[in-house]
Write a protein that binds this DNA or RNA. Structure first.
Lengths: 230, 230
DNA sequence: TAATTTCAATCAAACGTTTGACTTAATCGT
DNA sequence: ACGATTAAGTCAAACGTTTGATTGAAATTA
């Protein structure tokens, strides 16, 4: 399904998506009014119904628009990483993981993506709707999957091993918490915003953390988490 | 400011706060209607204006209510930890950190707090309002501060050292990501919810991660993050 | 011309808030 | 001791505004 959202549509449609992304990125679904969106898009109020069937349709299209945007910038990278991993010794996987995550960190701290995506993604994690499926399939799953693959390779486990998956989750968490918990950390450090020097410091510290986690001894008391699956 | 919210208030006031906590915990400010709240509280619509001056006032009172609730259960624990830390050798700090964070994990995964608090806290992190100050002062700062103290003690640093603060942040992040990113991880593991056995597995894995981070060598390229402070 | 897209105007529903009457329980003057 | 007065709390009803959605004509495009 989902042939590529019918590329032949008007410019109004794209302006609506961009305005909606900006709005939904900073405020909740109910906190955004259709009139505010069309104002930002310099379009008429009825354009939403015409192009997307309604506010809900616009929201879903916006999430898809976001996912597509981020996917395009990441899938190539992920694919390349997976190929590189197969051609190099397992212990090089740690470097691949670090480089990918640090590059990812920069994007969510400084990039355009970091402005809008986190709010939407968290909300859908916390209270999943139909939109979460889109985010999961196009963004979260591929990234999670590739990282688990690298982790498994580095630690000599199976990529499907829950331990690998949990470790991948922990690594991602270690990264995104500096975006999610930004306000708290900045306040603790008496900063008003991350500077590029701050980010460099963070990256150095995070690299150490990644390696520490990857090299940590496997949990000796481990039980198979799937025993209680579904 | 903030004498203890005038304890002599009516029962309706408390019912409103509890209903509001439930509502604001799962949906955004604009996603919650005053009529929905008073319905849950079995109160009259005008009770909100009467007791809190309006919807906004109710929201702020609800956040304060939440912070107070969680603070009472945590401050004793934090105080006890800080005392214990002073009386025991530094290398015992790691155990204190682990025990506290794992106890915290259980609360946010299973406890009543885990239902409502994360949504509110994240939203205020992502788009801070007046309510964030309440959360920061009563909840986030004390916890962050105590952890930084323990980290500094264990690693032989100053508690005010940015490296200690960042490490404390990383440790907290390592924990809360299993609540924040719950939906993604569960989907990756083919689970519909955490079982107590799952949580036991997570706790064992997390303990390893905590220790790995705490024992990791300090960043050799470190620069003082405060060089660029405000 | 025929199909597509935009527009101002309008709709019912839901929103947060306000009103004024009513109940209940202290407080007061005598 | 007792009716009058005041204050606190609750209630149904209504307020004006904003919401998402729809309409049918006008404009644009092919």
């Amino acid at each position: 399904m989902s042939d590529n959202e019918e590329t032949t549509h008007s410019a109004t449609r794209k302006r609506l998506l961009q305005a909606a992304l900006q709005a939904f990125g900073s405020r909740d679904y109910d906190g955004v009014s259709t009139r505010e969106i069309v104002e930002g898009a310099e379009a008429n109020i009825s354009a939403i119904s015409y192009h997307f069937g309604g506010k809900r349709g616009l929201y879903l299209a916006t999430v898809d628009f976001l996912a597509e945007k981020l996917q395009s910038g990441m899938n190539d990278q992920l694919e390349q990483i997976r190929q590189t991993a197969e051609e190099t010794p397992p212990d090089r996987s740690a470097t691949l993981i670090c480089d990918f995550l640090l590059h990812f960190l920069e994007h969510i701290l400084l990039g355009e993506m970091g402005k809008h995506a986190p709010g939407i993604i968290f909300r859908e994690q916390n209270q999943p709707t139909e939109a979460f499926d889109i985010l999961y399939e196009k963004l979260l799953a591929p990234m999670h999957h590739t990282l688990a693959l690298l982790v498994a390779r580095y630690r000599g486990q199976q990529a499907s091993d829950p331990a690998s998956i949990i470790m991948a989750h922990a690594l991602i968490g270690q990264t995104v918490i500096f975006r999610i918990g930004r306000t708290t950390l900045l306040r603790r450090l008496n900063l008003s915003a991350y500077s590029t020097a701050n980010i460099e410091t963070l990256k150095n510290q995070l690299r150490c953390n990644y390696l520490a986690l990857l090299n940590s001894p496997p949990d000796s008391t481990e039980t198979d988490i799937r025993h209680h699956a579904e």
